Amino acid sequence: MDINLARTFLMVAETGSFIEAAVKLNITQSTVSARIKGLEDLLGCSLFHRSKSGADLTAAGEQFRKHALALVRVWQRAQLEVSLVDQHSDHLAVGASQGLWQGFLLKWVARLRATNSDIAVSAFSAASPVLTQRLIEGTLDLAVMYRPIQPPGHVVEHLFDEEFVLVTSGKAPPGKREPGEYVLVDWGPDFQQDHAAAYPELTNPGLRLDLGSVGLDYLLATEASAYFPARIVKPYVTRGRLHQPKRARRFVYPVYMVYPEARDEETYELIIQGLRRAAARLG
């Protein structure tokens, strides 16, 4: 299938309009219409409900969207790896939950590149369901995440246990309620569920940040309290920049790496062993 058909389908689905899709893709509206018609002919079904107000996905269109994304990503990976072949012996595509990059995976990538500069690395941040889908479709070689659902044909290996602790940039005496604004940082569905059970009065605070560890910048700029991985905030607590209430609830989630069962043992063993050592250093 022409990859442009998938790209055009995704743009129409995103914009909800054949006209806007044509503008964004810098092609004519008739070309967009012809591509969608050709794709529908290939699949044997309608992908969009067309009306004067725009174009909405049919049930078949909703189902095809994930496959179109996979097709485009596989093609992009193929282009990248072909372009790298003259400069690098191998290419590693690794993805992880956002909070795992700071203070852990970026350091691991730096060590990997320092000792194996012939391995090109592409890094991605996404939620666990997206990472799992990309492992299945083959556009990720390795993923690191909290409590994964095991994809078929992949190994799930425990790396370490991540502890989330409450920290505050305010000046409350030890053992008392932290001062300043409470910020709910979104660390995924498991954390949201556990947090709601532990702090029902804080499920709808004035500020919610779906920014992972980047949200720490907010605490460093203003008096506020929030939950963060202990390994990330430890240096700030040690220097007295942040404070950790002693009686606050802690949340612990296991972290796993996921990689294919069928793999190049020589290349993967080097990568996996390095990741195991990086996890061991956290202890």
Rank of each mutant, 00 (worst) to 15 (best):
I3Y: 06
F9D: 08
F9H: 08
A13P: 06
A13E: 15
A13T: 12
T15I: 03
I19Y: 15
A21M: 04
A22R: 15
N26Y: 13
T28L: 09
V32C: 12
A34F: 06
A34P: 04
R35Q: 08
G38N: 13
L39S: 06
E40Y: 11
G44Y: 09
C45R: 15
S46N: 08
F48P: 07
S51K: 03
L57N: 02
T58N: 11
A60V: 00
G61V: 01
G61A: 04
E62W: 09
A68I: 01
A70F: 09
V72K: 07
W75A: 15
L80M: 09
V82Q: 09
L84R: 14
V85D: 15
D86Q: 12
D86S: 11
V94C: 11
G95I: 01
S97Y: 07
W101Q: 12
G103A: 12
A110D: 15
L112K: 00
I119F: 04
A120K: 03
V121R: 01
S122Y: 05
S128L: 05
P129E: 07
T132R: 12
I136N: 06
I136F: 00
I136M: 04
G138S: 10
T139W: 10
A143G: 05
A143V: 01
R147S: 07
P148I: 02
P151K: 00
P151S: 01
H154E: 06
V155M: 15
V156E: 12
E157D: 15
L159V: 01
E162S: 13
F164I: 13
V167E: 04
T168M: 14
S169T: 07
P173D: 15
G175N: 15
G180C: 10
G180V: 09
E181N: 14
V183P: 02
L184R: 08
V185D: 03
P189G: 11
H195Y: 15
A196F: 13
A198I: 01
A198K: 12
Y199E: 12
L209Y: 00
D210H: 00
V214E: 14
L216N: 13
D217Q: 05
L219Q: 11
L220A: 09
E223K: 12
A224E: 01
S225D: 05
A230H: 03
I232G: 11
K234P: 00
Y236H: 10
Y236K: 04
Y236Q: 07
T238C: 05
R241L: 13
R241N: 12
R249M: 09
R250H: 13
Y256K: 14
Y256W: 04
A262P: 10
D264M: 11
E265G: 06
L270E: 02
I272D: 11
Q273S: 08
G283D: 14
